[in-house]
Computed example of a mutant assay.
Amino acid sequence: MRHTISVLVENKFGVLARVAGMFSGRGFNIETLNVAPTHDASLSRITAVLISDDSALDLCIKQLRKLVNVVDVVDFTEGQAVSRELVLIKVKADSKTRSEIMQISDIFRTKIVNVAHDSLIIEMTGDDAKVSAFLKLVEPFGILELARTGALAQTR
Rank of each mutant, 00 (worst) to 15 (best):
L16Q: 08
L16F: 10
F23T: 00
R26M: 11
G27C: 04
G27A: 09
F28T: 02
I30V: 14
I30D: 01
T32A: 15
T32M: 14
N34C: 12
V35E: 09
H39P: 12
H39S: 11
D40F: 06
D40G: 05
S44N: 05
S44Y: 04
R45S: 09
I46R: 00
T47R: 01
L50P: 00
S52Y: 01
D53H: 06
D54W: 02
S55E: 15
D58E: 14
D58F: 01
C60K: 00
K62R: 12
Q63L: 08
L64A: 05
L64V: 04
K66I: 08
V68F: 11
V71C: 08
V74K: 14
T77F: 00
G79Q: 01
Q80G: 10
A81Y: 02
S83R: 13
S83F: 06
S83C: 09
R84M: 13
R84D: 07
E85H: 06
L86P: 06
L86G: 06
V87P: 07
K90Y: 12
V91A: 11
V91W: 01
S95Q: 10
K96N: 12
R98I: 14
R98V: 11
M102H: 06
M102T: 15
I104V: 15
I104A: 05
S105F: 03
S105H: 01
D106R: 09
F108P: 01
F108D: 05
T110M: 07
K111N: 12
V113P: 04
A116C: 08
